[in-house]
């Protein structure tokens, strides 16, 4: 009887312990590729932050950035604005993909992207524009 009980304890242990271990584990985000993308985004943030604050650029609900109000930027600066937004989105797409592949699960990319989407929006400063279900809203 004791043996049977021990068997059941062992059984449940083997069943549930691995799940707990996985749940507590961190995702790998310290690869050279991810660091490089992060560095590039960090360098660009100085430029983009002013546009977030002015409302020219907003954070989209799919974890990207978009030009929201090009008119708030002088005509001569719009080219630079568009290319900064395009470069930022390219980096973000690469970042999501890299995290998924670095963890051996390329199929996780959409979920990683949507996790980031809500975290970017959560952490956005007040006054910045973010995309909700019903469209753009100012935080």
């Amino acid at each position: 009887m004791k043996k049977l009980l021990a068997g059941f304890v062992l059984l449940f242990g083997t069943l549930f312990l691995p799940q707990l271990v996985i749940a507590a584990a961190d995702l790998e985000v310290n690869t050279p590729a991810i660091s490089a993308i992060k560095g590039s985004m960090q360098a660009r943030h100085g430029q983009l932050a002013a546009h977030y604050a002015s409302g020219a650029v907003g954070l989209t609900k799919d974890g990207m950035v978009a030009v929201r109000d090009a008119n708030s930027v002088p005509l001569k600066d719009r080219g630079a604005l568009n290319s900064a937004v395009a470069a930022e989105n390219a980096d973000r797409a690469k970042l999501y993909k890299e995290i998924a592949t670095a963890n051996g699960h390329p199929e996780w990319q959409p979920e990683i992207q949507s996790t980031f989407a809500s975290r970017w929006i959560d952490k956005a400063q007040s006054g910045w524009w973010v995309q909700g279900a019903g469209g753009w809203v100012q935080k």
Binding site: A23, L27, K38, H45, E111, T115, F116, R119, K123
Partner: peptide, 18 residues
């Protein structure tokens, strides 16, 4: 998909980038 770990990783990266 480890949602909690992903959130933690996202927070870390966003804090760094911003």
């Amino acid at each position: 998909f480890p949602a909690a770990a992903a959130e933690k990783a996202a927070d870390k990266i966003i804090d760094d980038v911003w």
